[in-house]
Design a protein around this nucleic acid. Sequence first.
DNA 1: TCCAGGTATTTCGATTAGGAATATTACTAA
DNA 2: TTAGTAATATTCCTAATCGAAATACCTGGA
Lengths: 188, 188
Amino acid sequence: MLGLLSFGQELSGYDLKKWADWSLKFFYWSPSYSQIYGELKRLEKAGYALSRVELTENTRGKRVYTITDAGREAVRRWARDAPVEPPVLKHGVMLRVWLGHLLEPERLREIIIQHRDYAEKMIRLARADAEGASEIPAWAYPEMVLRWSQRYYEAERDLAQQMLADLDELAARPRPKPVPGAYTRLRE
Amino acid sequence: MLGLLSFGQELSGYDLKKWADWSLKFFYWSPSYSQIYGELKRLEKAGYALSRVELTENTRGKRVYTITDAGREAVRRWARDAPVEPPVLKHGVMLRVWLGHLLEPERLREIIIQHRDYAEKMIRLARADAEGASEIPAWAYPEMVLRWSQRYYEAERDLAQQMLADLDELAARPRPKPVPGAYTRLRE
DNA sequence: TCCAGGTATTTCGATTAGGAATATTACTAA
DNA sequence: TTAGTAATATTCCTAATCGAAATACCTGGA
């Protein structure tokens, strides 16, 4: 949240959510509204953000937040000093492949193909976002991440394609004789 | 959890946790103990799992669970019919790059290098796990996922390397003249 | 004038995380 | 033989988080 505010604009909770949805979609999840509004209050109490109620003519008021120097210092400290955590991945598609023994091979193929198509969609989205390359120096980093995202989803697509090939190879493989009791000895 | 049980062994909550930690580490998170023990009770109540207390000589008892036919049918249904959700990614490293304007360029490099090293470690781990390729047919799918994981982390490593190059390119880039007020017009 | 859709925030229950607490057993080294 | 620590096994508790719905207002178009 402080990271989003660190670009310098005044933002409402609603803005924060929309912007997080939009800008982090390729590499991070976006917190829920309840999370955001609660956190904004805590940030203000902690002195990391300041709010005021914006009352434009014939608009209902909204509370907008700006980051304070202390807040900027706090994100900066986090970005600089927090331990580099490994990325968190929850790959439902791979979980399904992992449970391949429960599915018909054709259904498994379909699932992987759907995932490949999803990756392709993400490539197009990232490419579209990367179009409007601006001259503003602060945007240089988000743009770098956009390029990374493009390549990431290209890799994801290629990986899915590879897996389809592996699946064919598995289907063609001569079946080894079943060992008696094999399934109960799995943990050795 | 049902997926883990679907391989056929009797497992305790503790086993479940350890096995989840070990077998899903490349592509999925592992639920917490509290989650697991609570869920096991619910699964039993729902008729998806059966438990008994194992009391070997001079061992303290432990409750072990097996999957029932209804349980097997439920995971199978999930694996087959549940909508193919996009993978969830929380890439803290990219979040940091995105906030690159808050860091010294050298620190950013260090962070990316650490991430590349992490990817390399994961490649080695996946390779090591893939070594013991078994003949047991049910293992074929986990092994496919292992191969996928290897390639996934290879891509992650290459992507990090690319990003280091991009970073150099950015540093070498002639700085555009700062536009007055540019930072406050970011949202247009 | 009506309705859909976007803006803006709050509320609530359910889920999940994650660590501490509690025991017991197994292994290792002094 | 004993002391210590690592591993096994489960429970408990608090805080974080989700996600969906509820509320309400504003705008634009049919």
